[in-house]
């Protein structure tokens, strides 16, 4: 139980402070402190999302952000994901740049057999070439499902009466590797994020082993 406590403190702390928006650091002008975005694509489901980010006055470029997404389906409120975190540009040389991202995740999923509520975390590194009007970068990340509360419905318990409800720790993790690219205007950015997902054992994959997100950001 200590692990859950520690994980929760860490994750909620990060979440409350912070997202993992795809941005172009070089396209921000001095007066642009905030960025809002919408996106859609495949990310463990056909998802739709919205995000908000704010630059912090710091020695290194830092953006804190929150992101909400939900998958398509008949029931739009039963499944969702909230990510909160920060991204820091840790290195820059000429047009090249490297950014580290850390996010806390709270997500929910329900099907006719069970309901899942999960606290997780996601860490990623982005490195690429950034110009004021475009960028292209490689991404590597890890999404850890740290603690998941499972509550089984009557339909599952009819089949498996001994199934246990409660907190399961840990419950999984997936690595992602991909590319992202975008075109930036004075205030607006269009980006594409795509790549592959593999399970943490590097031997198995999710049902659909890739992700692809198309989004638009607006800076102000």
């Amino acid at each position: 139980m200590k692990r859950i406590l520690l994980a929760t403190i860490t994750l909620v702390g990060i979440s409350a402070a912070a997202f993992s928006q795809t941005i172009n650091w070089r396209s921000f002008d001095a007066n642009q402190k905030q960025v809002i975005g919408i996106e859609t694509g495949w990310n463990y489901g056909l998802v739709f999302g919205a995000s908000y980010g704010r630059r912090l006055p710091a020695h290194l470029p830092v953006l804190v952000n929150v992101h909400y997404s939900f998958p398509s389906g008949k029931n739009l409120l039963d499944d969702f994901k909230i990510k909160g975190g920060l991204q820091i540009e840790v290195w820059r040389a000429r047009g090249f740049s490297a950014t580290l991202k850390a996010n806390g995740i709270f997500r929910r999923f329900e099907n006719p057999y069970a309901r899942f509520v999960n606290f997780g975390s996601a860490f990623s590194a982005v490195a690429g070439y950034y110009r004021p009007k475009w960028f292209v970068a490689g991404v590597a990340g890890f999404d850890k499902a740290i603690a998941t509360h499972i509550r089984h419905g009557a339909a599952y318990l009819d089949n498996v009466p001994g199934a246990q409800d409660g907190w399961y720790v840990p419950t999984g993790g997936n690595f992602n590797f991909g590319m992202q690219a975008g075109i930036s205007g004075r205030k607006t950015e269009v980006f594409l994020d795509l790549g592959r997902v593999v399970t943490q054992d590097f031997k198995t994959t999710p049902f659909i082993p890739f992700y692809a997100n198309l989004g638009v950001n607006r800076r102000f």
């Binding site: 463990y44 489901g45 056909l46 998958p71 398509s72 389906g73 008949k74 029931n75 499944d79 994901k81 997500r107 999923f109 099907n111 006719p112 057999y113 069970a114 899942f116 999960n118 997780g120 999404d143 499902a145 998941t148 599952y156 089949n159 498996v160 419950t171 999984g172 993790g173 997936n174 399970t199 943490q200 054992d201 031997k203 198995t204 999710p206 049902f207 659909i208």
Partner: peptide, 30 residues
Amino acid sequence: GETLNNATYLDQFITGHADDHAILDYKFNL
């Protein structure tokens, strides 16, 4: 549709190694 979502969204909550039979079987049940 909800069905496709139900089959795929779970993959970010629970993952099993190639020999984690109980975990893989549980997801198969779901």
